[in-house]
Design a protein around this nucleic acid. Structure first.
Lengths: 215, 215
DNA sequence: GTCTATATCTCGATAGAC
DNA sequence: GTCTATCGAGATATAGAC
């Protein structure tokens, strides 16, 4: 209220925006820096000052784009999900499609250490309910589990997977295997995540696939 | 040298130690507090002041027992290893003994959330080479892997496991599965780690056990 | 929209009294 | 062996200049 500005504000919107970088670029650079630092040090050990320095701006400049550290984490996780959402297998495709897809993702991940590092680091500290990334973590697992579950159930409906296959356990252990492999791969890059996961999926097919469609 | 105390030091070793708590008790209490806090918050997010407060002493009192934060972490990890070293399976026992043992440990772990929490939290942040617990983590995986490897090789020598079984991959994926299951169990206690791991081991036996000894 | 400056707090570690 | 006192560094966050 009381917008009685005495002299009519001569400087109103400089036309053309000379070389402003538009703030979207600066924000993106800060985000990339945050991804890198949180991946390597974890969320708790990463400071806003470090991110600001890495992005080439001041802590206050960073605070303009991300008012709190938690806001920054939220953006980082959203970024990860966007990158990680690989070409999804088409609906109603071959049997075990969602499992084969996971093997493919494991192979991709062996070429992008930072994404794996970020995932392992954040999930390791977000198991507690009061961690700022806990909600994201729960949702992430629910999404992955649902994908595998529904894939298996569809395969059962098509007669490609035995009806007595323990859908929940199979999905659960496959997700667990992939997570554990990432942990080991980080400290020993010679671990072939894709090959080991592929072997596991092959064994699943042999155990629960119907004889007609087992390759 | 030069033990020329002027007046013969009347107070020399009070007999009986009235109620000193002997420092070992205080140290142990601080250690337990540290285990709990690091398990829940991670090492980076846990402060010496928090540990001191939880143990009922001042930060300086804590510093007497653990001069640096890293010393505290070392003691915490040693404590975990001591607790986690469960009844080892006797040498030269039944086939797949080391794998069955792992299933048993998984069942035990479902009754001690704190140990699992500590393990997952620390391994999550110790993947980087410069983390104070990185050396411990590498050694831990090497120990577990070696146990499973040597168990499988002994089984092969006894004719209980097929000669063409991929020892390294089998050991690797079993460890990975157990680690991943702990992560999921922490955010969803209904996950039956022991049952899923047992199903995995059964499938391993069916795939790589020799026909004669496959149950 | 980014800056300088500051407020308020907590960190790990050390020195010295008792 | 535990305390009080204090150090220097670095944390998040806010206020206001330009």
């Amino acid at each position: 209220m009381s917008a009685t500005t005495e002299h009519g504000r001569t400087r109103r919107r400089p036309p053309g925006r000379p070389r402003g970088q538009d703030s979207a670029i600066v924000r993106d650079q800060a985000l990339r820096t945050a991804v890198d630092l949180i991946a390597h040090q974890g969320f708790a050990a990463t400071s806003m000052a470090q991110v600001a320095e890495g992005a080439g701006i001041s802590p206050s400049g960073l605070a303009h784009h991300f008012p709190s550290k938690r806001d920054l984490l939220t953006a980082v996780l959203a970024h990860r999900d966007a990158v990680d959402s690989d070409p999804r297998p088409p609906e109603g495709s071959a049997p075990w499609a969602s499992f084969d897809h996971l093997v493919r993702v494991a192979g991709l991940n062996m070429g992008r250490r930072q994404i794996v590092l970020l995932y392992v680091t954040v999930t390791g500290e977000a198991t507690q309910a009061d961690h700022p990334a806990h909600g994201w973590m729960v949702e992430h697992f629910e999404n992955v589990m649902q994908t595998l579950r529904s894939g298996l159930i569809a395969d059962q409906a098509n007669g490609d997977v035995r009806e007595d296959a323990p859908v929940e356990s199979i999905a659960r252990e496959t997700v667990a295997l992939m997570d554990g492999l990432q942990l080991q791969w980080l400290i020993d890059p010679t671990v072939d995540m894709a090959a080991i996961l592929a072997g596991h999926v092959d064994r699943l097919k042999a155990a629960w696939g119907t004889p007609a469609t087992t390759s």
